[in-house]
Design a protein around this nucleic acid. Structure first.
Lengths: 105, 105
DNA sequence: TTAATATTTCCATAATATTGGAAATATAGA
DNA sequence: TCTATATTTCCAATATTATGGAAATATTAA
């Protein structure tokens, strides 16, 4: 993962609405949630939510599929894995023993 | 870790100069690096760098100590651990098997 | 085809973040 | 004390991001 990609993924999560949104999608699992349901549950107007979803999709943390008139969004676990791997690597660089997450494993 | 704290830590890292800066501090280890040396190595003017350092310190990802006229900055591994733990938890919530970082452990 | 529903794009406004020169602050040494 | 060095704060310009109403697009069902 390149620095720019990491920055984009971090920026996508560095906003309260989007972090809450992402958590909701992670909890929803593979089935995902429609844009409308997300808008309603989060109390965010459709246009605003669409902007945030686009940001997360572009950062490869969320994916979408179309089902009829509905667009279903779901967490992209692979993208999140890459981000966590990047952070873990750079957190531990030079001295792995300093990094608790690795010690715990 | 609360959502707001996670957002602040993510935002602190979601900027290229700061992510590169943080990586440099992680690699430098406990000894840390002075503000001036960071400014020179990164090619960022002192005032701008000071702004970025303040952002990282406020997010608890970096700490500083004063040595004479110098201010030495170093990575706060504990803070980074908390962020990674938060992300790992919320990445895996609901179905731990989906999350590669956990499977690898 | 027409009406209803779902979502996105367009656009303007508002809010927040970034940048860096210049001045202010702080410490060390002569 | 005076000067040099290190860093931060102040401040204003610039850039980026967030917000949401209204219009546009797309699909379904009647």
């Amino acid at each position: 993962m390149k620095v720019i990609e990491a920055v984009e993924a971090l920026a996508a999560l560095a906003q309260e609405s989007r972090l809450v949104l992402f958590r909701m999608l992670v909890q929803a699992g593979k089935d995902g949630v429609s844009a409308g349901e997300l808008s309603e549950k989060l109390g965010i107007p459709p246009a605003t939510l669409s902007f945030h979803l686009k940001t997360l999709v572009h950062a490869k943390l969320v994916k979408s599929r179309t089902e009829g008139r509905f667009v279903i969004y779901s967490a992209n676990y692979a993208g999140m894995d890459k981000l966590i791997a990047y952070l873990t690597e750079h957190c531990c660089a030079g001295d792995a023993a300093q990094c608790a997450p690795v010690k715990k494993c």
